[in-house]
């Protein structure tokens, strides 16, 4: 059996040597420079034309978007209170209050369903709306948070990049936000103003403001109210209706 030893030894040396060096090389390769670091992906290339050219609509139309829905519950406001339900109820009530002023209103979400940011933006952009109000709610902070897009303003062109379509409307969005701010201040509801990057707001081809409703913290002039308080909600909705009414007057005077 001596020759089998030779065969085995031969096979062993043949089989062992190259993989060994490979194995060492491999072990070196797996030593990462610091840690396994996935590089951030390249920014998406936004060059999709906006579906609607930003024409001035002949009719004053308001789009209401009740944020979240379906399995996207949004913020948990209280044990049995979810943001998606508050936004839906506020949107439905604002629809009837604004409609009562003879203003055309479109709601993007009418029941508990998960809509993508893209489908919300598509639905809103088809309308050439004079105002797009995105309704949110949170358990953090106090009063109402008004947010407009943090995109830098750009002139409106026929084809706006889809992801930054709002940039053409930022100046108008800021005016709409200040209209809502005045109406809420008139109702003595504390307001904070901010800029942010939020979907689908950055893709909206209309003056757009995100209205985030927070509970009322106790202050020098206010007593604490939970978000679920009916009178508090009513005063916010009244102020929003007044602001939209005022916005319609401004809009009529535009050339």
């Amino acid at each position: 059996m001596r020759w089998t030893d030779a065969v085995l030894r031969g096979a062993l040396t043949f089989a062992l040597l190259p993989p060994l060096s490979l194995a060492v090389g491999h072990a070196r390769q797996t030593q990462p420079p610091s840690a396994s670091t996935p590089l951030p992906p390249p920014p998406p290339s936004p060059s999709v034309p906006s579906p609607t050219p930003p024409n001035v609509a002949p009719r004053f139309l308001v789009v209401l978007d009740a944020a979240h829905g379906g399995d996207d519950t949004g913020a948990r406001i209280a044990d049995h209170l979810l943001e998606k339900d508050i936004t839906l109820s506020l949107s439905a009530r604002l629809l009837s209050m604004v409609s009562a002023h003879g203003i055309g209103v479109i709601t993007i979400r009418d029941y508990d369903v998960n809509l993508s940011a893209t489908s919300r933006a598509e639905a809103a952009n088809r309308m050439s709306a004079a105002a797009c109000i995105l309704i949110h709610a949170t358990a953090t902070g106090s009063g109402v948070h008004l947010y407009t897009s943090s995109l830098a303003p750009t002139p409106i062109t026929r084809f706006m990049p889809w992801q930054t379509a709002q940039s053409g409307y930022v100046t108008q969005s800021l005016k709409l936000s200040s209209e809502i701010d005045s109406a809420l201040a008139h109702a003595e509801i504390p307001v904070t103003l901010g800029r942010t990057s939020l979907q689908p707001m950055d893709s909206l081809a209309c003056p757009a403001v995100a209205v985030e409703v927070a509970p009322l913290a106790a202050g020098s002039a206010t007593k604490a109210e939970p978000l679920s308080d009916a009178a508090y909600q009513r005063s916010i909705l009244d102020a929003l209706t007044a602001a939209i009414d005022e916005w319609r007057n401004d809009w009529r005077q535009q050339p």
């Binding site: 089998t4 085995l8 096979a11 043949f14």
Partner: peptide, 21 residues
């Protein structure tokens, strides 16, 4: 025999690889 030899070699190689790793 060659097959057996290769099989043994594969097992030894695996052991060495695991140790190196």
């Amino acid at each position: 025999i060659l097959f057996m030899g290769m099989l043994i070699a594969a097992v030894i190689m695996a052991a060495i690889l695991i140790r190196l790793r």
